[in-house]
Write a protein that binds this DNA or RNA. Structure first.
Length: 308
DNA sequence: TAGATACCTTATAG
DNA sequence: ACTATAAGGTATC
């Protein structure tokens, strides 16, 4: 096992591990203190977070068990990690530690709502999750609360994922397309996936058969990528935007979920254009264009924290 | 091509 | 207690 630390002060801007992991972008982590995300904002000051990272082309060819925690503040703290390999490139990738957060915030329009959201969760970054698990997570997210989406992904891992060890502890990897493709709808419903069960199975089948892979969309222009992602069963425009933003690195994507739609009604009614595509363009421009997805994620977490 | 409706499951409000 | 409602929507008609 290797271990190490990353000083936040060496990054371009602050970093908040808890906000980044628990803000509803990624459902692949467990808190070692046993808390799920049921208690929104439950103290996670220096809690360890654990996962198994799927192979990422260009970063790691192997599956990597990984633990990480943040000690200290979002400006001067330290990110401690333990993993099977040097985790610095991996953490940099997963939590976008190479994004210049100050510059991103600086390029975001000076709107009161955005300012409040950015101030409240200073240091929250977007995630960059492996494509398949991200796709499945957001297929499961339809009409579902964050805590329950997290529960579904955990059950998928613990029921069907391979066991990987790190320092005497066992962790479950996320099951691969072949595994989920060969489950029955009934088996997946037993994990409380509800009507999403056949969507998960059929999408996994598409990947297992080599028919398509979500990462192929990464090479397309943003709107074409979103359109391409909707070929997967259970993936409409909103879920496609989530995968584009949280996995494929399209930072301009603004998923139009219920929270953002309410925000548009209350704060930016002129951005409502009737169709997803047009409304999406309007709010993207209002949020500053290239990094509009950052603004969306801050607003989502900010409003949801008050709504629950 | 737009618009309405069913859909699993569970936590929470009333 | 019990019922209605809504939760990071999508597929189908």
């Amino acid at each position: 096992m290797e271990r190490g630390a990353i000083d936040v002060v060496d990054l371009a801007g602050p970093f908040d591990l808890q906000a980044t992991v628990e803000s509803g972008q990624s459902y692949l982590w467990n808190r070692a203190d046993g808390r799920t995300y049921d208690d929104l904002h439950a103290y996670g000051g220096d809690a360890w977070y654990e996962t198994v990272v799927d192979p990422i082309p260009g970063v790691t060819d192997e599956r990597v068990p990984l633990r990480v925690r943040q000690v200290g503040g979002v400006h001067d703290g330290t990110l401690e990690w333990e993993a099977s390999i040097d985790a610095v490139p991996l953490l940099t990738r997963l939590f976008r530690l190479d994004d210049d957060l100050d510059a991103i915030r600086g390029s975001t329009p000076d709107l009161p709502l955005l300012t409040r959201a950015f101030d409240r969760y200073e240091g929250m970054r977007l995630t960059r999750d492996p494509a398949f698990s991200c796709l499945i997570s957001f297929i499961c997210s339809a009409q579902m609360r964050v805590a329950r989406i997290h529960g579904m992904q955990r059950r998928l891992r613990e029921t069907y994922g391979d066991v990987v060890e790190l320092g005497g502890e066992s962790y479950h990897a996320f099951p691969g397309p072949e595994t989920l493709a060969t489950r029955t709808e009934s088996e997946l419903r037993d994990l409380s996936l509800g009507y999403r069960a056949p969507y998960v199975r059929r999408t996994a089948e598409m990947l297992a058969d080599g028919e398509a892979h979500p990462s192929e969309a990464a090479d397309l222009p943003y709107e074409a990528a979103r359109e391409s992602l909707t070929q997967f069963v259970g993936v409409g425009e909103k879920v496609a935007d989530c995968v584009a933003l949280f996995s494929l690195g399209f930072l301009e994507a603004v998923p139009l979920d219920t929270w953002i739609r309410t925000t548009i009604e209350e704060y930016f009614p002129d951005c409502e254009r009737g169709s997803y595509a047009e409304t999406s363009r309007a709010i993207r421009d209002r949020f500053g264009g290239a990094y509009a997805g950052y603004a969306q994620t801050y607003v989502f977490y900010h409003l949801r924290a008050d709504g629950e």
